Simulated scan of single mutants.
Amino acid sequence: MAKQILPTYSICSIADTPVTKNDFMTDRFSHYLEAHKDLHFPHKHSFYHLVFFTEGSGSHSIDFINFPVEPGQIYFMTPGQVHEWDFRKNPEGYIINFSENYISTLVMNARYLDQFVFFSGNAAEQVINIPKQERPQLVQLLESILREEAAGADLKDDMIRTVMIQLFIHVNRLAAPAEKIPVANYNSVLLKNFQKLIDLHYREKKLTRDYAAMLFVTPNHLNALSKHVTGKPAGELIRDRVILEAKRLLVNADMSIAEVATDLEFEDNSYFSKFFKKYTGQTPESFRKSILDK
């Protein structure tokens, strides 16, 4: 097949360009699909993205994890994640694309979205099946957002932002009931900071001790905390992030395996290939082929 570059789409224009001044768009999902028949798959977004399905079937994937499409399902994506869908029955629902700045303009906390479980960047937490009795409230909120965008009234964006926050809080309560939400304490804050540091430094820092030093704790403490809360040792969280980025880069057919290895700061192509196969069961070449030949 011909080489292609994994496209990264921006808001509104849905083109292979960086984010523009347009920070928000919303639409009915069927109209969005009709207007953007030329979307390439797989692709990445440079914005936050959510879809609520009211009809349809098929499948979609977030960062190479597959999910069935079902009525009543809502999914969320953060910037940079790789997305793909394959519909068997024409879907209907709602779509919202927005930048982080769009929300932070209203709230003082620049990291406001971090508190919602579905904006964790972990695909397994980003797809939520909404109980039937709760769906009318979501539809009501999404219809309100569509009306505000179409009307263009004074303070339209502030009204949309407040309704979106209501939507996020409502879905977050359904995804993580109050009795299951851990009280914010030193350990939970420490783990959150560890995960943020991984996102910032996974290329050049691949050892638990590196992150423990930045967090002013011992490697044993960080490892025990990670295993207690996530079920995975600290080193595995670091490794999972490296593997995820490797997969994202491998989908870009214009990057050689050696270039991917260099980007992720491995010593050489051979070591990277052994690392990737050890933890995925596939060579980088076979993984790339499995995705791009779909």
Rank of each mutant, 00 (worst) to 15 (best):
L142S: 00
N90T: 09
M1T: 08
K227R: 13
I291V: 10
K227E: 12
Y32T: 02
I62F: 06
I238M: 02
R241H: 07
R88N: 13
P284E: 03
L138A: 00
Q81G: 08
H43W: 03
R135F: 05
K3I: 11
R88F: 11
V229P: 02
E245R: 13
K206I: 05
A213E: 10
K196N: 06
H60G: 14
L191Y: 02
E148W: 09
M108T: 14
S226V: 00
L244Q: 01
T162P: 06
K227A: 13
L207H: 15
R239F: 05
A213P: 05
T280P: 05
S286H: 11
T8F: 08
E134M: 09
L190Q: 07
Q4W: 12
A153I: 14
I103M: 07
R111W: 12
P284Q: 01
T280Y: 04
L250I: 00
I96E: 00
E134Q: 14
D154A: 15
D154C: 15
M164L: 12
N187E: 15
T54Y: 04
L155G: 14
V19P: 11
A261M: 06
P177R: 02
F41T: 04
A153H: 02
F216Y: 14
N129K: 13
A124M: 14
Y271D: 12
D114S: 08
P177M: 01
I74P: 02
H49M: 05
L113H: 03
A124Q: 09
I181D: 15
P284R: 01
Q137C: 12
Y75P: 02
A176K: 12
V127N: 03
E259G: 06
N22V: 09
K277N: 06
R241G: 04
S13H: 14
K180E: 15
A151R: 09
R28Q: 10
V163F: 08
Y112H: 14
I291A: 07
A176C: 12
I145R: 01
K206D: 05
A246K: 00
L207S: 09
L264W: 05
T8W: 03
Y94I: 04
I14H: 14
N252C: 08
Q4T: 10
Q166F: 03
H40P: 13
H45N: 12
A253P: 10
A253L: 11
A151P: 07
I5P: 11
D154L: 15
Q282S: 06
Y271R: 10
L190S: 02
L292G: 02
N109Y: 11
I11N: 00
V107Y: 14
R203M: 15
M1H: 06
K232G: 08
H228C: 08
K227W: 08
P219W: 00
A178G: 13
L264Q: 02
Y48I: 02
V171A: 08
